[in-house]
Design a binder for these strands. Structure first.
Lengths: 188, 188
DNA sequence: GTCTATAGGCAGATAGAC
DNA sequence: GTCTATCTGCCTATAGAC
């Protein structure tokens, strides 16, 4: 891994754990093993780093969603795999980086905002397609627009992550997300 | 309003908009109209201010929940009134203060954490009782423990607030929360 | 209770040598 | 690309006068 990637992965973890306003160039420099000044060679300002972080994170997520589409076969399996992403993140003492940044919206550089918005649009669109497919296949059942339910899924996962961070109760997270998945299953 | 209350309300708004790591004593002092040093007379450290903020916010919420219990008559009305709290908060460019703090958990003073946890327990318990009552009255229908569904409600509202902050789409927030409320209504 | 003054440290950022 | 050295500004916090 080259230095730039090392910086990005270290900074990403710091944002997920402490927030964009909760870490400094000094933190990243210590972890990467270079001096603060050297970071500015790769990312001139913290805002530049922020923009790169959102773009890299979105690319990672796109990859993860493509992996789910390739590996999982049924709609319920895909939904569970999506939930599992958030669970794994929580398990490593992190939350979704873009969920974290969304709360900090009012303090972020303007260049970060459209990229952040795009992350949520991507997720919502992927989920909407998944839900629509499941419904047309008869494995999911729900009323109304798939896009609205997609936003509900995304919201609940972001919120459950946040609540779990305070409670530390991973079992409660699992029961909450089980309700989410079960809610879409066609009752028989 | 005395100075201490003025400080608390100003700081609360700043946390809801910018996060605990996104505001300073200077911001509060400017708004209240006193000097930074004077703030330390009321709250010796920022951590002390943080503890007072969570306690005051929880008390406000307790009051709001008691008001709903007094004013609203049916379980669906009460649930809609609870959703309306989050909507009004979003409408004034804020999110739930404790939702914001929950994301910042790893950077907060240890004294704040049990209070923060307590806020979520209170909300979950109030919601669980509401859902259980609605079910026993036959107006709500859901499977499983009311406490788990209560956490799901809380999670979705926290998450929808966060997502809305990025999208700026209040209509989407309304459609998301409508799904939440409709999900509990007994189908007939 | 509020003030001025200041301490001591850390923030993001830059200049210029190697 | 990384370094040392430094800048400027802001941060939380304290001392002590009024």
């Amino acid at each position: 891994m080259d230095t730039k990637e090392h910086i990005l992965s270290s900074a990403q973890r710091l944002v997920q754990q402490r927030g964009f306003n909760g870490f400094s160039y000094a933190d990243v420099a210590d972890e990467v093993g270079i001096r603060k000044a050297s970071l500015h060679h790769h990312f001139a300002s913290k805002a530049d780093l922020g923009v790169a972080l959102v773009e890299a994170y979105t690319a990672q997520f796109d990859q993860a969603l493509a992996d789910i589409d390739r590996a999982a076969t049924t709609a319920p399996e895909k939904l569970k795999a999506y939930v599992a992403i958030y669970r794994a993140t929580l398990n490593s003492d992190r939350i979704c980086m873009c969920g974290m940044l969304a709360t900090e919206t009012m303090t972020l550089d303007a260049a970060m905002l459209p990229r952040l918005k795009r992350f949520f649009v991507r997720n919502t669109e992927w989920l909407a397609q998944l839900l629509a497919e499941g419904r047309s296949q008869g494995v999911f059942a729900f009323d109304g627009a798939a896009a609205d339910h997609a936003r509900a899924v995304l919201s609940m996962l972001q919120g459950a992550s946040l609540v779990c961070r305070s409670s530390g109760d991973m079992d409660a997270f699992d029961r909450t997300t089980a309700i989410l998945v079960n809610g879409f299953m066609r009752k028989g």
